[in-house]
Design a protein around this nucleic acid. Structure first.
Lengths: 167, 167
DNA sequence: TTATTTATGTAGTGTTATAACCTATATGAA
DNA sequence: TTCATATAGGTTATAACACTACATAAATAA
């Protein structure tokens, strides 16, 4: 991938309890979601989800292979992909097609809302926003066309406020 | 790619003049656009663009390698990618990240409008729509966030009207 | 013409994703 | 519990997509 940012830059501080707390809460919530749907959040799937919650930004599938491999037995790429498929199915993770990367669904897993990701070309930051206006407008167009949407993810690339005017 | 549809299904009828007429007009318009910008629509780039206009739907980079290779000297993948980069730069072609595929910009090349692609999981059809409402709503959100957008392409996957209720 | 830039050729490699097949574990029914 | 079935994961290999690096050729500007 030739990462713009090294993994280390994106790893959360281990000594800042808030981050791991957030991860724990997200996992607990995910477990509840899976239980209610009869879906099995197995140890592998859970570890992948934890890894994605543990970093600030998206990770490639092979990033996950390396990251999880470094803290235990190395898993084959296909294993990671299978876990990702499951997590995407449960809408716990989004695939950022434009980046070939995966990111944990943030916060409100509440409804099947349309979310947009603002992906910065400069710093690589990914900003997940849930705009009811955009969601509604898009849904209206889809209704007009007779489309039944599956993906409700919009990926928009450009430059974030901090990275304006830079090359 | 293990194409859901064979190339032949997607090739336009050679004996239906309307299709090739459309392609010719699109190419003529593209030539004009390039001339006005001082960009060079070389024979290779032109052939790639023609190929994309000549089919009904997106093509992968290696589909283009095969398609163009079958009607002349085989070109290396990098050659196709370079041509695609140019065409995307000129906004004559869009990359569909979710499909690893490329599609010719349809019709109104007029302005840098936000376009949305409705990609059908069932039949693979790609429907390009230019909704001013969606465009405006998205731009408003981006302004609020201080984002300066580059990609103005929204990819939405789901099922088209014809493919509802199927599996 | 000559210098410079832009485009293409060639070979190799990096990166992302899946196929095919087998084994193990979990779940439900008898 | 025991067996049947379904689901998850292990292993190996390969497919599919994209680009690096460097050489050559063609177009453009000086």
């Amino acid at each position: 991938m030739a990462h713009a940012l090294s993994l280390h830059h994106r790893l959360s501080h281990a000594d800042a309890p808030t981050d791991s707390d957030r991860t724990e809460r997200a996992i607990a919530q995910s477990e509840a979601v899976c239980r209610s749907k009869g879906a099995r959040l197995t140890p592998i799937r859970r570890r992948v989800l934890e890894a994605l919650h543990g970093v600030d930004g998206p990770l490639g599938a092979y990033d996950l292979v390396d990251l999880l491999g470094s803290q235990g037995r190395r898993m084959a790429p296909i294993t990671i992909y299978r876990a990702l498929d499951f997590l995407i199915e449960q809408e716990l993770v989004h695939r950022l097609a434009s980046r070939n990367a995966y990111i944990a669904s943030s916060g409100t897993v509440a409804g099947a809302r349309t979310t947009a990701f603002l992906i910065c070309d400069g710093c690589g930051d990914v900003n997940e926003i849930a705009s009811p206006d955009v969601a509604e407008t898009v849904l209206k167009v889809l209704r007009d066309q007779g489309y039944q949407p599956r993906t409700k993810v919009l990926e928009i690339t450009g430059r974030c406020a901090r990275c304006q005017d830079v090359h």
